[in-house]
């Protein structure tokens, strides 16, 4: 971990890992999609639309997992003061927001044939929507504060507050939902799921996780380079001062 604290070494590592990771993603995603589209059987109730699950459920997993990454990185920023922690958190937020958005859109498309409308205030989808809002807040806070150090700490505090709140939100949304309508229609990722569906689901989950790691590393590299550009610009201004401009 100590070697990774050095951004230059980190950049070298990213350069070395990226091609292998990309190859792994191609294999996993290819296998997963093949299994999902051609091997796994259609659902006896939902027919072919059940295949949306192979995108929707892994996206939802990653949406949650990504917030966990941000929360851990937030601890890294606030407690261990690791130099790459706030870079990791900042880079993860837009990716997490994208996975959440994919989960929302696929959930809505999946729901259309079942519910007859694109959106129902179902407990899972609604929690996902609140998660999306939390991501938007994080991104906006980063955008609003120019100084990277302050932005990182502020976002870390917000991320931890959000992480503590997520279970409470999930619980209250579930309670709110059962108050108004009986049990949700969406129960596919519950324990009653057929094993024939599980293998493709896990392969897709692994593919999405690898995709997240790749995107995250690339985004971190971009963020490190962006900060270097900023630092270079600052020295340029200082040199101009010395030159008497």
């Amino acid at each position: 971990m100590i070697s990774l604290a050095n951004p230059t070494r980190f950049l070298n590592l990213v350069g070395a890992v990226v091609p292998w990771l990309a190859a792994l993603i191609v294999i996993l995603l290819g296998t997963g999609l093949y299994l999902a589209f051609f091997v796994s059987p259609p659902d006896y109730q939902q027919g072919e639309t059940v295949r949306i699950m192979y995108v929707h459920v892994p996206a939802a997993w990653l949406a949650m997992g990504c917030f966990l990454v941000i929360a851990i990185a937030a601890l890294g920023t606030l407690i261990w003061r690791h130099p790459l922690a706030d870079v990791a958190a900042k880079a993860a937020a837009p990716i997490g927001a994208c996975f959440t958005f994919v989960a929302l859109v696929t959930g809505s498309l999946w729901g259309k044939p079942m519910w007859g409308t694109y959106w129902v205030w179902d407990a899972r989808l609604t929690s996902m929507l609140v998660l999306f809002l939390l991501y938007l807040g994080l991104i906006a806070l980063w955008q609003a504060i120019e100084e990277p150090g302050r932005a990182g700490r502020a976002a870390a505090i917000l991320a931890l507050v959000g992480a503590i709140n997520i279970p409470i939100i999930k619980f209250s949304v579930n309670w709110w939902n059962t108050l108004h309508q009986p049990a949700s229609v969406l129960r596919v990722d519950g324990p009653s799921i057929d094993p024939a569906l599980l293998t493709p689901l896990f392969v897709m989950g692994a593919a999405f996780a690898a995709l997240f790691v790749l995107l995250h590393l690339l985004a971190m590299r971009t963020e490190i380079l962006r900060r270097r550009v900023r630092a270079l610009q600052q020295t340029q201004v200082e040199h101009a001062v010395l030159a008497g401009a």
């Binding site: 809002l133 807040g137 609003a144």
Partner: peptide, 17 residues
Amino acid sequence: EGGAIGVVLGFYLVVVA
């Protein structure tokens, strides 16, 4: 300036949601 348009859209989404 700090993604002003994005914040407005986000606010709209939150209020409706």
